[in-house]
């Protein structure tokens, strides 16, 4: 018998068909919440990646116009004051945990593209995990459905459960 197995705990394989319905439901719920969590993380990662890409593009597009370019500086999200681009030699890059580093524009672009790449790798890993979990969930749901069907037909015959 080719028993469907969960890969949630790799060292031991569990015969899903041997589990009672209540436990299967628990497993299913757990998998669903895990999957949801992972999907949320996935979209957050995607957003972060897009943000880094935007930053890189901004460094490229914003600074190629050179010094003295008139700009509008946002004081608040809805209040802008006119200004001039003072220096395009260096930019200040937020590298995390409150640290900022002065970088040349090419170095900054390289920094951002590296971040995008890193996140891309993470996204790929996460995608694999999500797919695996999805597969597990499908298997569990299948077995659960079969069990419920089997039980209801049995319950009809014996009239007591």
């Amino acid at each position: 018998m080719s028993s469907p197995t969960t890969t949630t705990s790799p060292p031991q394989t569990i015969d899903l068909t041997a589990l009672p319905v209540a436990q299967l439901t628990n497993v299913k719920n757990q998998l669903t919440s895990e999957l949801q969590h992972l999907t949320t993380s996935f979209s957050q990662l995607k957003q972060a990646q897009a943000k880094f890409r935007d930053c890189g593009n901004n460094v490229r597009d914003g600074l190629e116009r050179g010094e003295g370019t008139p700009i509008l500086v946002p004081l608040t999200p809805s209040l802008y004051v006119p200004g001039k681009l003072a220096s395009t030699d260096t930019v200040l890059v937020d590298i995390g945990t409150g640290f900022y580093v002065e970088k040349t524009p090419p170095a900054a672009r390289e920094f951002y593209s590296r971040k995008v790449e890193e996140l891309g790798r993470n996204l790929q890993d996460l995608e694999k995990i999500v797919q695996g979990k999805q597969g597990n969930l499908n298997v569990v749901e299948d077995v659960l459905r079969q069990k419920v069907i089997a039980e209801s037909s049995k319950g009809g015959g014996e009239s007591s459960v």
Partner: peptide
């Protein structure tokens, strides 16, 4: 937090020695 700090640490090692570092 660990991941973020590790990222920063890695960034420091990649930085040219002349770069000015600021702290917010």
């Amino acid at each position: 937090q660990q991941q973020e700090n590790k990222g920063v640490q890695k960034e420091f090692t990649l930085l040219p020695p002349t770069s000015q570092i600021y702290k917010l």
